[in-house]
């Protein structure tokens, strides 16, 4: 259908993950007070980034087959 959906999903989540992780890293412990001491921006940002990269990898591999 013209566009492999995994590319926008992968790109969006890599980008959001990167933004969150960077913000979490810069914010430090003060930021984590709300989330009960867990630096959720940092850790969840990394999770999102890994997911986004995996989607991009899948799209890239599928593209390579054609």
């Amino acid at each position: 259908m013209g566009l492999d959906i995994r590319i926008p999903i992968g790109a969006l989540f890599s980008l959001l993950g990167g933004l969150l992780a960077a913000y979490g890293l810069a914010g430090g412990p003060a930021l984590a007070r709300r989330s009960l001491g867990i630096n959720i921006d940092l850790w969840w940002g990394l999770v999102l980034a890994v997911f986004g990269a995996a989607m991009l990898l899948l799209a890239w591999r599928a593209g390579g087959r054609h």
Binding site: L20, L31, R34, S35, I40, D41
Partner: peptide, 11 residues
């Protein structure tokens, strides 16, 4: 509002 710091709040 209670649990999410800025950043996660946006998400």
């Amino acid at each position: 509002g209670k649990y999410f710091p800025n950043g996660m709040l946006g998400l």
